[in-house]
Simulated scan of single mutants.
Amino acid sequence: MIKAILFDICGVLHVDNEPVAGAIEAIQLARDEQIVVRFVTNTSRSTSTDMLQSLLQMGFDLSVEEVLTAPGAVKLALQQRNLRPYCLVHEKLRPEFADLDQSSPNAVAIADAAEGFNYANMNRAFQLVMDGAPLLGVGLNRYFRQNEQLQLDAGPFIAALEFACDVEAEILGKPAKAFFQTAVESTGFAAEEVLMIGDDAFADVQGALAADLRGCLVQTGKYTPGDEDKIRHPGAWVLPSVVEAVNQVVKPTYAYSNK
């Protein structure tokens, strides 16, 4: 029985800041049925505070305690290890790390930097990692959808540094098992009692299944036909949107599985 739901945000609850039809009501339905909800995201083009305010303005009902972000996980790791990061991140995300000592960097933190992924910045990150700095990333998302087009995410740039430096980045967001475990622990339930709903077959659904959660791929956001075939673990639900996913939890019927 599913007792908690983790919702991805961008592409699942909204697309280009327009709520997915029925998403606001779906979350309220989950709450009405005493299902614990959390909101988990690798989105890194805004601070946690800005993201929360944007969702509230769209009409979603949530609190800051219910939101777990990959940039937040990266910042916590940097603080716990007393690292001074070189932050290759989007300009709108810089305030998230502004209170950290970033002088004489001894770590590299990468999120979606958009135009910041230029040669000079990538080369600076490369030099630091080659000198021994750990490489921390928000996630391995390959792309996202914005303005009705697919856009490169942070994953390909992290992979480029891994290749150039012959290192493996430490991923703090999805699909890292530790990120899902933190989210599950916050619900108070066992992993198998928690459902992850996302539009990314790899980072959201495959990552959740590998961490022993349930997984649901929705056909909104970045989803493209055939994405369900990329999920290596069997048993994922594949449904049109978050509305059908929540309804499936509340009133189980038949959900199409990837295998």
Rank of each mutant, 00 (worst) to 15 (best):
E170N: 08
V194T: 04
F189C: 02
P134I: 04
V218L: 05
E91W: 07
D16R: 07
P156S: 04
D101T: 03
N258Q: 11
S63R: 08
K3P: 01
A114Y: 10
C87H: 12
R145D: 03
K92T: 10
N258K: 05
A26L: 01
K174G: 08
S257H: 15
D131G: 13
D50Y: 08
L135Y: 06
T224Y: 09
A183I: 12
L239K: 00
E228K: 08
A98L: 07
A236H: 08
V184D: 04
D32I: 00
V74R: 14
A107F: 11
G11A: 04
L128R: 01
P71K: 10
A210P: 00
T41C: 10
A201S: 12
V36F: 07
L150K: 07
E244W: 02
A107Q: 02
D16P: 10
V242Q: 01
A107H: 05
K230E: 13
I110L: 15
E170L: 13
S104D: 07
V20G: 01
L78H: 06
L78C: 04
F202Q: 09
N42R: 12
K92M: 13
N258A: 04
G188H: 04
F202L: 11
I110E: 07
D8F: 15
L161M: 04
V184E: 03
A191T: 08
L209D: 05
L83S: 03
L55E: 03
